[in-house]
Amino acid sequence: GSMEQGFLPKGWEVRHAPNGRPFFIDHNTKTTTWEDPRLKIPA
């Protein structure tokens, strides 16, 4: 929902695949990933 959306880094969006699995869109680089960007520790 909109709650989890608010925690994503700037430029990211979460969508759900037809099977219900969430995936993440990085509008900054125009890419998608199954990995939650929030789980990655910034270098």
Results as ranks from 00 to 15, higher is better:
27 H>C: 10
8 L>E: 03
29 T>L: 05
15 R>D: 06
40 K>S: 15
40 K>F: 14
26 D>W: 00
8 L>M: 08
6 G>L: 13
3 M>Y: 13
9 P>Q: 05
35 E>G: 04
7 F>N: 15
15 R>P: 03
26 D>S: 01
19 N>A: 00
7 F>E: 15
24 F>M: 00
22 P>D: 07
42 P>V: 12
22 P>Q: 08
11 G>W: 03
28 N>I: 08
3 M>I: 12
23 F>W: 08
6 G>N: 11
24 F>V: 01
27 H>E: 06
37 P>N: 02
14 V>L: 10
13 E>Y: 04
18 P>K: 09
33 T>Y: 07
14 V>T: 04
12 W>P: 00
18 P>D: 08
5 Q>C: 15
32 T>A: 11
9 P>N: 05
14 V>W: 01
30 K>R: 09
25 I>D: 02
41 I>E: 14
8 L>D: 04
24 F>E: 03
31 T>S: 08
10 K>A: 15
5 Q>W: 11
23 F>N: 04
8 L>I: 05
33 T>A: 02
17 A>D: 14
41 I>R: 12
19 N>C: 06
39 L>I: 11
6 G>T: 11
34 W>G: 03
32 T>S: 09
36 D>W: 02
25 I>R: 01
32 T>E: 08
12 W>Y: 04
11 G>T: 00
32 T>M: 15
22 P>K: 08
4 E>N: 11
11 G>V: 00
28 N>V: 07
23 F>D: 04
31 T>G: 03
14 V>N: 01
43 A>Y: 11
21 R>S: 06
41 I>P: 15
32 T>W: 15
8 L>G: 02
22 P>F: 06
41 I>F: 12
1 G>D: 13
15 R>F: 08
12 W>E: 03
38 R>T: 07
24 F>C: 06
19 N>D: 15
14 V>G: 03
39 L>Q: 13
30 K>N: 15
36 D>Q: 02
37 P>I: 03
12 W>R: 00
21 R>N: 07
43 A>C: 15
12 W>I: 03
35 E>A: 08
21 R>K: 11
26 D>H: 07
24 F>P: 03
42 P>Y: 10
12 W>T: 02
34 W>E: 05
1 G>M: 13
26 D>T: 00
33 T>N: 02
28 N>A: 07
27 H>R: 04
16 H>G: 03
18 P>G: 08
4 E>L: 14
41 I>W: 14
20 G>P: 00
19 N>H: 04
42 P>S: 10
7 F>Y: 12
4 E>I: 14
13 E>G: 01
15 R>A: 10
2 S>Q: 14
10 K>Q: 14
39 L>K: 14
10 K>D: 15
11 G>A: 00
19 N>K: 01
18 P>T: 08
28 N>F: 07
22 P>S: 05
22 P>N: 05
2 S>K: 11
29 T>G: 07
13 E>N: 00
29 T>I: 03
42 P>D: 11
42 P>G: 11
18 P>E: 10
20 G>E: 04
17 A>I: 05
7 F>V: 15
23 F>R: 01
18 P>S: 10
6 G>Y: 11
39 L>S: 12
20 G>N: 04
30 K>I: 05
21 R>A: 07
20 G>L: 01
42 P>W: 07
31 T>H: 06
43 A>H: 10
40 K>A: 15
27 H>G: 05
16 H>K: 09
5 Q>L: 15
25 I>L: 07
38 R>S: 06
4 E>R: 09
21 R>P: 05
34 W>F: 09
31 T>R: 09
39 L>M: 11
13 E>V: 04
23 F>C: 10
34 W>I: 04
24 F>L: 03
21 R>H: 07
18 P>I: 08
25 I>V: 10
36 D>A: 02
22 P>H: 09
9 P>H: 05
3 M>S: 11
1 G>T: 11
18 P>N: 08
35 E>Q: 10
17 A>M: 12
11 G>Q: 02
11 G>M: 02
8 L>Y: 04
24 F>H: 00
19 N>S: 10
10 K>V: 13
29 T>C: 03
43 A>V: 13
26 D>I: 01
7 F>H: 15
28 N>P: 01
13 E>I: 02
2 S>M: 13
35 E>H: 10
37 P>A: 01
1 G>L: 13
14 V>C: 14
10 K>E: 14
8 L>N: 02
34 W>R: 01
37 P>F: 01
3 M>P: 14
22 P>C: 11
33 T>G: 02
6 G>Q: 10
37 P>H: 03
33 T>V: 05
31 T>V: 08
31 T>L: 08
43 A>Q: 13
36 D>F: 02
43 A>D: 14
29 T>R: 06
23 F>Q: 07
31 T>A: 06
39 L>F: 10
4 E>H: 13
16 H>T: 13
34 W>V: 04
43 A>L: 13
10 K>P: 15
5 Q>T: 12
33 T>R: 01
41 I>A: 13
13 E>L: 00
39 L>W: 11
29 T>E: 05
32 T>G: 07
31 T>C: 13
12 W>M: 01
12 W>V: 02
15 R>G: 10
15 R>W: 06
3 M>G: 11
8 L>C: 09
40 K>P: 14
16 H>S: 08
21 R>I: 09
4 E>M: 12
21 R>E: 09
3 M>W: 10
36 D>E: 05
42 P>E: 12
40 K>R: 10
2 S>D: 12
8 L>A: 02
13 E>P: 00
38 R>A: 05
25 I>N: 02
32 T>P: 03
26 D>F: 03
23 F>S: 03
24 F>A: 00
19 N>R: 00
8 L>W: 03
16 H>W: 15
32 T>Y: 14
35 E>Y: 09
24 F>Y: 13
34 W>A: 03
25 I>F: 10
9 P>G: 04
20 G>F: 00
17 A>T: 14
11 G>C: 15
5 Q>V: 12
30 K>M: 12
2 S>V: 14
39 L>E: 11
2 S>N: 12
41 I>C: 15
23 F>A: 02
28 N>C: 12
7 F>I: 13
31 T>I: 08
